[in-house]
Nucleic acid binder design. Structure first.
Lengths: 123, 123
DNA sequence: CTAACAGTTGAACAGTTGTTCAACTATCAA
DNA sequence: TTGATAGTTGAACAACTGTTCAACTGTTAG
């Protein structure tokens, strides 16, 4: 249906070898924003400290102090990572006096972890 | 079963408030290596260029030139990312003369993408 | 053979990221 | 009020990451 009269900027020094394939794939690609959001979501999980924190909270609600002892890190480092996880709504918290208890904000984390765990196991 | 007589290095300046919780969670945490591998796997997906390449290959086998035209990137940049995806066995390739055709190496990518897409949609 | 082209590679660069450190807020206890 | 403690925050730093550039390999066509 669609021809290749799209004026692609000359970013590639080769003549596109399969213009029909490129045109067809172009129509099947998801929205650019969706792909960027997906990468963004994966990026959050792409740090072992954050993964360890999430696994810890998956087991039990914990305060910053608990987590820092459990993972052998400073409270500051833990707090910085919790802020990131909070920003993307992966963890939630409740305050009791001076103590801040963190827990998983959504069950989706467990689903994603399971799917990825399968992938890691296979290799 | 296990008491808290593990000599944790003094990395935290607070007295662990919930030693019982920390001890219990410690027994439930996965192997350190597993969590590191999981983060590593997520890290690969945590870049929009790689996500876009994987979506493209999900639609159709393509050569480097096709991908670079489709995504508006240099062949070099695409090739560098393909190397990373190849290293972790997410894509495979076949050579025909000068042309190298890349395709998805495993169906698992689609599973993971679906799971993550659901998560992204929700927010 | 040579010229052209598909693709790869390594160095260099800018931009990003995670941890550390020090200073800070807020709450509790005396 | 004062001191101690739980936690947060911003700046600084080193380590890492993705893209660019230039040089390179290997294959095709003349």
């Amino acid at each position: 249906m669609q021809q290749s009269f799209m004026p692609e900027i000359a970013v590639c020094d080769c003549e596109s070898i399969h213009e029909d394939v490129v045109a067809a794939v172009r129509t099947q690609l998801p929205e650019e924003d969706l792909m960027i959001d997906m990468a963004e979501a994966f990026r959050i999980f792409g740090d072992s400290t954050r993964v360890r924190i999430l696994f810890a909270l998956k087991a039990h609600e914990m305060c910053v102090c608990d987590i820092s002892v459990l993972l052998g890190m400073t409270k500051s480092a833990v707090s910085h990572q919790l802020r990131i996880l909070k920003q993307v709504n992966l963890v939630k918290y409740r305050k009791v006096g001076r103590v801040v208890y963190y827990s998983l904000a959504d069950e989706h984390v467990k689903t994603i972890f399971s799917a990825c765990m399968d992938h890691v196991m296979e290799d």
